[in-house]
Design a binder for these strands. Sequence first.
DNA 1: GAACAATATGAACTATAGTTCATCATAGAT
DNA 2: ATCTATGATGAACTATAGTTCATATTGTTC
Lengths: 197, 197
Amino acid sequence: MGLRADAARNRARILEAARAQIARYGPRAGMDEIAEAAGVAVGTLYRHFPTKADLISAALTDRTTRVVDSVEAAVDRVHAGGRALEEITAVFTELVDVSGEDRAVKSAAAALGINGDDQAQQRKRARAGLDRLIAAAHEDGDLHPDVTSADIALLLTTMPGHEIDARARSRWLELMLRGLTPAYRRDRDPAGRNAGE
Amino acid sequence: MGLRADAARNRARILEAARAQIARYGPRAGMDEIAEAAGVAVGTLYRHFPTKADLISAALTDRTTRVVDSVEAAVDRVHAGGRALEEITAVFTELVDVSGEDRAVKSAAAALGINGDDQAQQRKRARAGLDRLIAAAHEDGDLHPDVTSADIALLLTTMPGHEIDARARSRWLELMLRGLTPAYRRDRDPAGRNAGE
DNA sequence: GAACAATATGAACTATAGTTCATCATAGAT
DNA sequence: ATCTATGATGAACTATAGTTCATATTGTTC
């Protein structure tokens, strides 16, 4: 059998606290502070994550997992009859709303020189899901002809985090969607998520 | 008044080295390393910049200055008969090409909790320049009607740095420009044009 | 409920990196 | 050429934050 009950609970609490603290203080978030926020002693933190890099790496994997899940859920909905562009928009909207914390973790990882090389598998899954979404959207004629899944991945990667406010993020999303969709569809508002001024 | 000749030279070298080291190693770039890269002793570095925050702040101001200069040069060219959208594009292109280092400095500043509050003046100048560029481009009908200087500022702020390669940056630029320009300039729709603006 | 292994604790240790300062060197002025 | 104020040097100091480990606690098994 696996972890003892309290150990599993603590592990989850630590990851949550780590994300929160890093979102608040960036890479400067201390191990002591994270432990305290998790209601745990430093030693416990180190039992679960032998090093700070390991901790941030784990938090990063969590984030990537969430992105992949989001993409694959969208694929399922398209499979069930949903319109691809709407689902793509939904994925972006969800991630833009939620990803302030996650972006912080990612940039903290970059700042500390952590490369999530064990993410290859997940990246592959995400790319596969994106490919299906993009193909479906192209069939609907809802995407500019030259848009590829690499473009979507690019925009997901460079998506702004909480360094700008919610209104600006939503505006960013709108401008970006304009760049993806063909001209003759621009007057539509596919997902009914127009947040501009 | 003024700095002694060697002091001025050293100050410039230090700023250059700081930018380079931070671009390479992020916020982890050490004061000792920066000093060595500048060909100077640590003490000299501290004579010019009493604290690491001061150093990064100064490097940040340099960056902001460059952006402002770029914008104002574009304004001048428009004044001399240049087409506004072309000049806006030129500004973006120049900054996307050059700003890998500068973005690194900026995110390092963020990671270390440095707020460039003394940048208000420069920010004001940049905004003024942008306003003129945007107004001119609107007169040409070259921008989507609802695009404001805040949008341009938003995109300048969230512009990707050297965390992605040159090709991806150039693609990012293309997608963003599509989001800014009106539909009827982007492509034609022989089947049935219904994008009325 | 006793026994044991797994887990938690947190003060102490250590490594890293920012900062200081007594001393030396030199640009610029007379 | 001399002088001195400004600047440069870098070993030493210190503060911060990551890590360890001897000890105490607790979940789990029989």
